[in-house]
Each structure stands twice: as structure tokens, then as C-alpha cells.
Write a protein that binds this DNA or RNA. Structure first.
Length: 488
RNA sequence: GGCGGCAUAGCCAAGUGGCUAAGGCAGCGGUCUGCAAAACCGUUAUUCUCCGGUUCAAAUCCGGAUGCCGCCUCCA
């Protein structure tokens, strides 16, 4: 089954064909390290994490490059404000980023290059552009001349005249054309700088990606990704720089993930609605956040709210309850009962769900559809557990074994189901109690009291205690083994 | 002003020409249970914002209207 990918430049799904058979080179624009990562960064990271995981599962050898912008105006500003070196800022936030990504279960990319470590590559590339007449130097700045590159605007579907008509471009009389963008900026007094043929300065924002993708993935590679806000101007400019220099296409597929909105509003500093990843993870299991993101297609906008996160939590709980059921598979010699019709039926359905899941991912990484099949297996597990209550343990084990395999597969692609089910529920309880300021020991005491009342068949008292707990959103579950509880 | 996207049940969300319009959350009825919870079974959109058109056939294609959103400035 081929993988189909929506290509931003053509606005169509196209069959993926790698430059080199069996290999994939993918470059994703990472963060500018000047602040804590928020939920928007989380989405981009999770989306491309799943893209890479699925391509690997499909047998491709993937080289995944995600850069750090560690020199930039915003980093310099913050360093000035704090009175520290710019490297203090970039290093601090790269570390925070790495911690957040690890917490989210995002696999580390193959290569995570930093802009400051590729100055020579950038300067060389700018040199080529000047030499070929695509760029010009003015007073220590170097600008790319957009009208020299005739394909400018092709990725984002714009043309220069239209953009100039709307014209909210910055005033800068050094530029020949207002749409020209900086490849190199002369440094001001007291700012960090690197030596270059044009004097002391630092690179423009876009050039680092052109230089680093070329170094690690070659002149033309397979997939270039990022948030949809990067389509213009960042990716447009990358294309201009790279293709002007090499005369070859930069990437064959451009993928862009949609934005995270907050309660239907754009996330922005002025609205004060920026949610750092680490804040959210204080209150929710990281997989809740992943599930929330993956329940929508990666190109659609996603609307973050406490309610929607709670819904995802409920869904994840449903999955983990099924995982808990199949955690202990009875040890039996396989074979005996596996051919009985009921068992075969379940196994066939699970196999089919896994195939459908893979097909959904092949279709432009449709995780939302894929999750439908995950929940189908959840239902099959619960269903077979009931139907097989009195069945031979061999039958049950056969179905559970198949389901376990399926969940391992789903989890490996989506980056969820990595927790032990008992651990998951214990953790969930602790988190929810913390959120609501509930005392776990007190709850346990009340439950103990109810248990005594139940043994004495004092249903009235038992129910009274349960109602009291219910008012605190504590939900009880009685079983033969005893009473367990969770937070609603 | 220019470019683009979206509109599917109470909510979230797949589906882009043809089997009964996935799935999750919430609700309702039933089974189970001392009663519950969980789980299971059943149920909740004769219809996909509206109006026209193409077609044997449209949520799906085309045209128009309305509403919402994004980009054009740093941004995942």
C-alpha cells in the first residue's frame, strides 16, 4: 500500500515516492529557543512524530532532521533583558524543549542541528547566491532579490504583484524590492556577531534551514514540514534560497500542520492564552494530550479547551480499561481451541481493524480515522471478555493475545499506550485528586467504612457513604476482589 | 485590499461520487449488580449551513449566498 501525502504546493494528495528507494529524508522546522514550548509546538511535534513512526513502520529508513534556531532577534532581546549571554537563553530553552518532548513521548529526531553550529554553511550559501546574482549586499546586510527568482510565491499560491498591492511590508530603503528578505544582517554594537565577507553580522532567519537541510539531507529531499504559519514567508523563502543556489527542487513534499486554537480563539500573547506544555502535563497524562491532538486530522485546526481534554481523558481511560483486561493473559499452550468459530471471528475482526488502521495512516496520516479502529478493538476485547466468560481459557487467551499485538502496533505508531494500565489508573487518580484538592487517604478511609457497612449488609449506610463520595466526584466500583475507585 | 481554508447529531470528529453517513464524549432504554459503577446490547443526523446546477446517482463535483477562521508582520 502506497502512502499518500497532501502536498501544500499542489493542494492535493499525492502518492509518496522517495528520492532514494526505501529511504526518507524529512526536515521539520523546530523552535526558536527563546521561550517555553506551548501546546502549538506540542501539536507540530506530535504530528511529525507520528508521520515518522508510520513511515518507519512501513519499512522506510527515515532520517528525521529538526533544527533549533539558537540565534535570533527574540533570543537577543531576552538575553539583554535578563543581562545574560544569548547562549544562556538558547541553551536553557532547548533543554526545556527536550524535557517537554520527552514527557510527551516524542521520539528524538535523528539529527537536531543548531543554527550557530552551521555558520560556515550559511555564509557559503549566501556567497553562492550573491555570486549568481540572486542576492545583493548593502551596508553589511545581504538581501535576497525576490524578483530574480521567478517561482517565488508558488508554494503559498501568491504572486509578488498581489502581495505588493496589499503591502503591509516594513519600510527599509536598503531593499530594492520591499518583499526582499535578509540573508545576513549586520550586527549592531554589543550584539553577537560572526565574521563574514560582508562584515560582522548574523544570519537571517530563513537561511539556516536551507543550509542545514542541504547538509544533512542533500539538495533535494523527500518531505519538508512545519506549522501552517510557516508556509509564508519562511518556507517560500527557503525554497527561493535553496533552489536559486542549486537549481534543484528543495523538497518533493511539503506538509503543514494546522493550528491549535484556544476556546475558539487564536493563541497569542496579547490574549494571554498561551498554554505551556509543562503546565498542561501537571494536570493531564501526556497521552491525553496526544490523543486529543490525534483525534483530529493534522491539517484541521484543533480547538483546545479543558472540556475537550477531559473528553480525551475519558476515551483514553476506556482504552486503558481494555488494556488492563488483557494485561494478564492466561498461560496456556496455544492451539487447542483457537479454531472454534467464535474465537476465529474475533481474531479476524481484530486483524481487519489493524489493516484498516494502517490504511488510514497511509491516507495522509489520518489518525482520526485510525483511532476509530483502535476503539473497535477496544470493543472487541470487552465483548469477547463477556462472551468468553465461560469459555475455555485457551479461547480467551487467543483473542487477548491478538488484541495485545494490535494495541502494541497502534501504540507504537501513535505514541500512546506506553504506560502500564495499573500505573496509568494510579497516576490518573493522583492527578485528579491533586487537581480537586482531594485527600486520598480520607477517601480510602470512607471506602473502608462503607466496606464494613456492606459486609454487615447495611445498605443504607453504604449508599450514604457512596453518595458523599459521589459529591466529590469519586466513583466507586465494587467487584468480587473488592472496591476500586476513580475520579469522574 | 489580496490569497486560502472550514461549515456533518447535544458537543468533538472521520468520510470527498454509489453498500445501513466511522469513532469518541454526553444522553436515553435494557442486561449485569444489594443498589451502583465499569462493560455489553440497543438507541440518538431519512440527512451533511442555505439556494441553484451537473449526474442514473452528491455530504462528496460546479456556481452563488451566508457564517466562521487562517495567512499576507514574529509565530508550530
Amino acid at each position: 500500500m502506497p502512502v499518500n501525502i497532501f502536498h501544500t504546493a499542489t493542494r492535493k494528495k499525492e502518492t509518496f515516492k522517495p528520492v532514494n528507494d526505501g529511504m526518507v529524508g524529512i526536515y521539520v522546522c523546530g523552535i526558536t529557543a527563546y521561550d517555553i514550548c506551548h501546546i502549538g509546538h506540542a501539536r507540530a511535534a506530535v504530528v511529525f512524530d507520528v508521520v515518522v513512526r508510520h513511515l518507519r513502520a512501513r519499512g522506510y529508513r527515515v532520517t528525521y532532521v529538526k533544527n533549533f534556531t539558537d540565534i535570533d532577534d527574540k533570543i537577543i532581546d531576552r538575553a539583554k533583558k535578563e543581562g545574560v549571554a544569548f547562549t544562556d537563553i538558547s541553551e536553557r530553552f532547548i533543554k526545556f524543549h527536550n524535557d517537554d518532548m520527552a514527557a510527551l513521548g516524542v521520539e528524538t529526531p535523528t539529527i537536531t542541528p543548531k543554527a550557530t553550529e552551521h555558520m560556515d554553511d550559511m555564509i557559503a550559501l549566501i556567497g553562492v547566491l550573491v555570486e549568481k546574482g540572486f542576492a545583493y549586499a548593502v551596508d553589511g546586510d545581504v538581501y535576497f532579490a525576490v524578483d530574480k527568482f521567478h517561482q517565488y510565491g508558488r508554494l503559498s499560491g501568491r504572486n509578488l504583484d498581489e502581495m505588493l498591492a496589499g503591502a503591509r511590508v516594513d519600510v527599509n530603503d536598503k531593499k530594492k524590492n520591499p518583499m526582499d528578505f535578509a540573508l545576513w544582517k549586520a550586527s549592531k554594537e554589543g550584539e553577537p556577531f560572526w565574521e563574514s565577507p560582508w562584515g560582522k553580522g548574523r544570519p537571517g532567519w530563513h537561511i539556516e534551514c536551507s543550509a542545514m537541510s542541504r547538509r544533512y539531507l542533500g539538495e533535494t529531499f523527500d518531505i519538508h514540514g512545519g506549522g501552517e504559519d510557516l508556509i509564508f514567508p519562511h518556507h517560500e523563502n527557503e525554497i527561493a534560497q535553496s533552489q536559486a543556489a542549486t537549481g534543484k527542487p528543495l523538497a518533493n513534499f511539503w506538509m503543514h500542520n494546522g493550528f491549535v486554537k484556544i476556546n475558539s480563539e487564536k493563541m497569542s500573547k496579547s490574549l494571554g492564552n498561551i498554554f505551556p506544555i509543562r503546565e498542561i502535563l501537571k494536570n493531564y497524562h501526556p497521552e491525553v494530550l496526544r490523543l486529543f491532538m490525534l483525534q483530529s486530522h493534522y491539517r484541521s485546526p484543533v480547538d483546545y479547551s479543558t472540556d475537550s481534554l477531559n473528553e480525551s481523558r475519558a476515551g483514553l481511560i476506556r482504552c486503558y480499561a481494555a488494556l488492563q483486561q488483557i494485561k494478564e493473559i492466561p498461560e496456556v499452550s496455544a492451539g487447542n481451541d483457537e479454531t472454534s468459530t467464535g474465537v476465529k471471528d474475533y481474531i479476524d475482526k481484530i486483524t481487519e481493524a489493524v489493516e484498516n488502521f494502517d490504511a488510514a495512516l497511509d491516507d495522509d496520516f489520518n489518525t482520526a480515522r485510525g483511532l476509530g479502529y483502535v476503539f473497535e478493538v477496544v470493543r472487541l476485547v470487552n465483548n469477547s471478555a463477556i462472551a468468553g466468560k465461560n469459555a475455555a481459557t485457551e479461547s480467551k487467551a487467543a483473542v487477548f493475545r491478538e488484541a495485545k499485538k494490535a494495541f502494541e502496533h497502534f501504540g507504537a505508531i501513535l505514541g500512546i499506550f506506553r504506560d502500564d494500565p495499573d500505573q496509568f489508573f494510579a497516576n490518573d487518580k493522583k492527578m485528579e485528586c491533586g487537581k480537586r484538592g482531594l485527600n486520598m487517604a480520607e477517601i480510602e478511609d470512607l471506602i473502608k467504612g462503607r466496606q464494613e457497612a456492606r459486609i454487615a449488609r447495611n445498605w443504607e449506610k453504604a449508599d450514604e457513604i457512596r453518595n458523599r463520595l459521589a459529591a466529590l466526584h469519586v466513583l466507586l466500583k465494587d467487584s468480587k476482589e473488592g472496591t476500586t475507585w476513580s475520579i469522574e
